[in-house]
Design a protein around this nucleic acid. Structure first.
Lengths: 253, 253
DNA sequence: TCATTGGCGTTATGCTTCGTAACACAACAC
DNA sequence: GTGTTGTGTTACGAAGCATAACGCCAATGA
């Protein structure tokens, strides 16, 4: 172990004893090692023995910290959602509030490049559940997913606040979608109201963005040149924004 | 074994001996069993022992037919691409040639429902490669993928032939994308020419369609009601078609 | 100071899988 | 009949998951 125990606990709450800090540090190290191995080996198929070996331990020791592989995966999935959310949020906040298109493009770029940089973890959270893994209902992963996706919502709220949100190119809004916004309003009473049109436009944006990103990250656009993919993505995001009613400048950035 | 050997070989070529027919039948049975197990168990993590047990054999016998797990997976992936392609093609051809929007919607619906019906196999071909699996370069899977995706191309050709293909909502086409169409022209000399605009619009459509489908099939839209998802999908496909320059009737179907 | 307790890590073990090797049997060729 | 090829079996070694049983160390209390 080259790292030291943290002198101050990172989170609030009751002060942690030395033992508890050591335990927390070990848990972090396990998760970091698992994440690194996953990215390096290009597979979500974690092996306890590999993690342990990498940490200079033996496999059974890990069971002191995670009951089984699923519990470790659940923790990793929640962390990964948080990381994606943080990366996207940072990209969004790096652009001035009044530059809606700039913020949308920044979020799109961040989503895309994060996925390309770490396709395995992208698949871990937004692809098919890992072989044999079943996510706990309403568990920490669900909450983390909601936090991450709210970054996209935030842009629409930004735009709406500034009156810059045009009508999306929708022909009609179905009753069932109106009901969804009602549910949203109840589960997130702190957020501003979202019109059904905006709700629909936001989901459209996410699905659209996710489609390109997912295909590219998993190598299904590998037959195109990098330049072609880049150009296609920018035009794709522009069209998505236009469709959603977000303000898009005429000149390409 | 309750099935009989096929009296006539399904494919053309030199007549097969009884032994060769038996071998082909066994290979088919292995692939069918593997596919079924994959769908039933909800995981791409195939076990030779399970397949063999299901077939009333022992695991080592399977190595007479497939060198290892990767070789079986490669075969399954190719077959799955073919099946998706066939399903989508059948849906497309069930709609009159002159009903471009109808054909587009049919293709979209077929893609979506196939993915929802068999999310594991959808992930197998269009999600992250299976843990530890590396697809052979330019192998049978690549060809099968191209065949499947050409169904979307066909709609644009249909529309172009009938002069029904409007200009997509593109602001500009990058040079790198023009080069892509040149490559396409050379690799598929039998197909009609495709303009860069059409090429870009087609990829846009695929990415868009894939995004919604992928999110839904992997359960990330599970918090919405079925009706809401259905309604969202239809409006989503409409917008995608409009964006791509395909003719869309005003009245919802 | 010293014994006790609880947490952490080890080795040992059982079960399952993959993939290979060695062997048995049936179909076919001559 | 005899040899060859194809196909299946059992036997085996290596590796992983997960549990059990045991040793070590630090924190605690008299």
């Amino acid at each position: 172990m080259t790292t030291h125990l943290p002198h101050q606990p990172a989170t609030d709450g009751p002060p942690l004893s030395r033992r508890e800090r050591a335990r927390a540090a070990t848990i972090d190290e396990i998760k970091e090692t698992a994440t690194r191995l996953m990215s390096e080996q290009g597979t979500t198929d974690l092996r306890f023995s590999d993690i342990a070996r990498e940490m200079g331990m033996t496999a059974p020791a890990l069971y002191r910290y995670f009951a089984d592989r699923d519990e470790l995966l659940t923790a990793l999935i929640a962390d990964t959602y948080d990381e994606l959310g943080a990366v996207v949020a940072a990209a969004r906040e790096r652009v001035p509030t009044d530059d809606i298109w700039g913020r949308f493009l920044a979020v799109a770029n961040a989503y895309r490049s994060w996925a390309n940089h770490d396709p395995v973890r992208f698949a871990l959270i937004l692809g098919m559940p890992v072989p044999g893994y079943a996510a706990p209902e309403d568990g920490p992963t669900t909450e983390a997913a909601i936090r991450a996706m709210s970054q996209l919502k935030a842009i629409f709220f930004d735009a709406a606040e500034q009156g810059a949100l045009g009508a999306p190119l929708l022909t009609e809004v179905h009753e069932a979608l109106r009901e969804c916004t009602e549910v949203e309003k109840q589960t997130h009473p702190d957020e501003p109201d979202q019109s059904p049109e905006m709700f629909q436009a936001m989901l459209h944006s996410w699905a659209s963005l996710h489609g390109f990103t997912s295909l590219e990250a998993h190598g299904h656009l590998g037959w195109m040149s990098q330049e072609a993919r880049d150009a296609l993505f920018v035009s794709y995001v522009r069209l998505t924004a236009i469709t959603a009613g977000l303000p898009v400048p005429n000149t390409s950035r």
